[in-house]
Simulated scan of single mutants.
Amino acid sequence: MASYKIEQAIDNDDLAKKASQVIAAHIDLALDQKERSQISLAGGSTPSLTYSFLGQERLPWDRVDVFLGDERWVEPNNECSNALMLQRSLLAQFPGSNARFHPVPTTSYSSPNESAESFSNLISKICVGEPPIFDLIVLGLGEDGHTASLFPSSDSLLIKDKYTTIAHGKGKDRITLTAPVLSAARKVIFLVSGASKQIALKRLLDPSESYLRTPAKLVSPISEIQIFADKSALLLV
């Protein structure tokens, strides 16, 4: 069973500043121990400001491999693309622009299944371990309790023998890391912002809650999960 530590922020700006500093510290620690660090970042609206601050951190970004935990199966320049969001935040400025970004291959393949398989192969080549081990995975939390693109009561929740899988949510086909990969990370951080996340966050912290209703419960690394949440998201906790 996962254990959680909550870091309270005043608002999304405060959350972004605090989270970016902690993320940078974990990357720095990993790079003290090995030549390259592999991290996986969440998409969505909440993390964008965090990544803008993170991109300003003075790290040897040329030694950091950046992945996404999930991606919509859209063109890379589509406004719904998580890769585009990263290009506009973390990768938009020096020194963060020096990071080696490995986007999820999407419409360069004929189907989401082919994209997922290609993404799995890419991760296997760069990350060690079975399942692959990321030094850090940053995740978001949806209003319905989903994380990455693992949605409530979906088939993707049951995938244990693959590193990636396909999913469908909010009208889009998606490629996502699976629960075993998310749980294998050395460190997991959740970013949770806004009053609309109150119920989902309460369920995530409830030991009796089912992963079928709140898929974020599937993320269960050995280390303590750190949750950065603003005051409005914490009102029910």
Rank of each mutant, 00 (worst) to 15 (best):
P47H: 03
S3Y: 12
L54R: 11
D14P: 11
L68M: 15
I23W: 06
F53M: 05
P60C: 13
D11E: 09
V66Q: 06
G44L: 01
L54G: 03
G43V: 03
D62W: 04
D28V: 00
S20G: 06
Y4T: 00
S3T: 15
G55R: 01
N12K: 13
I23S: 06
W73P: 02
G69V: 15
A83F: 05
S52T: 12
R58N: 14
Y51A: 01
S52K: 15
E71R: 12
I10H: 12
A83C: 07
L29R: 13
S3L: 12
V22G: 00
S48P: 00
W61K: 05
A42K: 09
D32F: 10
Y4R: 00
L84G: 03
M85W: 03
L29H: 11
V64R: 06
S40Y: 01
L31F: 10
N82V: 09
G69I: 12
L29C: 06
S81A: 09
S45T: 14
Y4A: 01
D11W: 11
Y4W: 04
D62A: 12
E79D: 15
N78C: 08
H26T: 06
T50C: 08
A24S: 12
D11K: 05
R58E: 15
W73L: 05
E79V: 13
P76I: 08
L59D: 00
D13A: 12
I6G: 02
G69E: 03
V22C: 05
Q38S: 15
T50H: 04
Y51V: 06
S3H: 13
A19M: 08
L49C: 05
S52A: 09
L84Y: 06
L31Y: 09
L41N: 04
G69F: 00
I27K: 02
S40G: 15
S81M: 02
E57W: 03
S37K: 03
G55M: 01
W61I: 06
A9Q: 01
A30P: 02
N78G: 04
S37N: 10
V74Y: 03
R36S: 03
I23R: 11
